[in-house]
Design a protein around this nucleic acid. Structure first.
Lengths: 170, 170
DNA sequence: AATGAAATCGACCAGCA
DNA sequence: TGCTGGTCGATTTCATT
């Protein structure tokens, strides 16, 4: 029993709807209604509610990086000189480097984890050069991704029964 | 000059369209057409083309993890005993653990990088226990994410001019 | 949360550059 | 090959219960 305060309240139907549209929202209300055993109006009502509540933050097209030649995904750990209080600024600069797709500020001896997509090794070298040239960056360590086994597109689908239960009973 | 063979050919207009819909596809054709200075038919035509070509793999709703109480994001490095050729199987098992949202198979001394979302520390402990109990897993190292600075939703927007140029000139 | 009607939209086509 | 413009059926939307 830890985190009790949840901003929004969703029920099992909402979660089923979310699971469906986070996978594929390129459907009309009639189809959604049939799949979820709801009326079209009910689906419409719930989708609006979920968007208003901020549970659904956007409806977006998923672009295949490979189709654009972005065949290389790299994970880079970035450490900064720990005297500098410029972590915020460094983080912002990391997000602005072309090719970076995910940037996380982390606890521990590594300060940032950066995921980047590039088309070839030259672009990778250029990208890492850009990172190390940021003022305050101390050390970097990069690893190639050989296979993307799960890509993070689906949030609700990744939740356990316990996580679901914590949401429902509130 | 490295990777020359790209499966699909897209032009600047396609990329502008992709940039728009990967950010927000919750708009009608009329609005898209106005923003891109195209006719509705042209937008319709290009969107279909991009979906057929596999550049757009899906249109999906983005769910805010925080709205569902998933306040904790953790990055875990997983090493396997290197005698075992069960890397594929271990990878699959990692993707199936509740809470894991991204799983990458990597080169180097770390074999997998796993990103997980949980609601509290107990769930995190349970998750890590599940990982280490996988047959063949040797060692894990986890790091809390304190701030998500860039979350990887947009692929085209992250591309440099050079990457774009490599795509256009083919 | 359901109904039904009005407004709007997306799909499609024949023709064109 | 990519686009235009217009039509029609389908869809979203909304007031009402």
């Amino acid at each position: 029993m830890d985190d009790e305060r949840t901003d929004v309240d969703v029920d099992e139907t909402d979660l089923a709807l979310l699971r469906r549209v986070e996978r594929d929202d390129d459907v009309n209300l009639t189809e959604l209604a049939a799949e979820l055993d709801l009326s079209k109006s009910a689906v419409h009502y719930r989708l609006n509610k979920l968007k208003d509540a901020g549970v659904i933050t956007a409806v977006s097209a998923d672009v295949d990086p490979l189709a654009l030649g972005l065949t290389t995904l790299v994970i880079t750990e970035v450490s900064v000189v720990h005297e500098s209080g410029y972590a915020d600024e460094i983080g912002t600069e990391l997000t602005e480097i072309d090719g970076t797709v995910q940037v996380y500020y982390t606890m521990g001896d590594v300060d940032f984890v950066v995921l980047s997509r590039v088309q070839n090794r030259e672009q990778l070298n250029a990208l890492i050069d850009e990172i190390v040239s940021i003022d305050g960056v101390n050390e970097t360590s990069s690893t190639f991704v050989m296979k993307e086994l799960k890509t993070g597109g689906e949030t609700v689908a990744a939740m356990s029964d316990e996580m679901i239960a914590n949401l429902i009973e509130e």
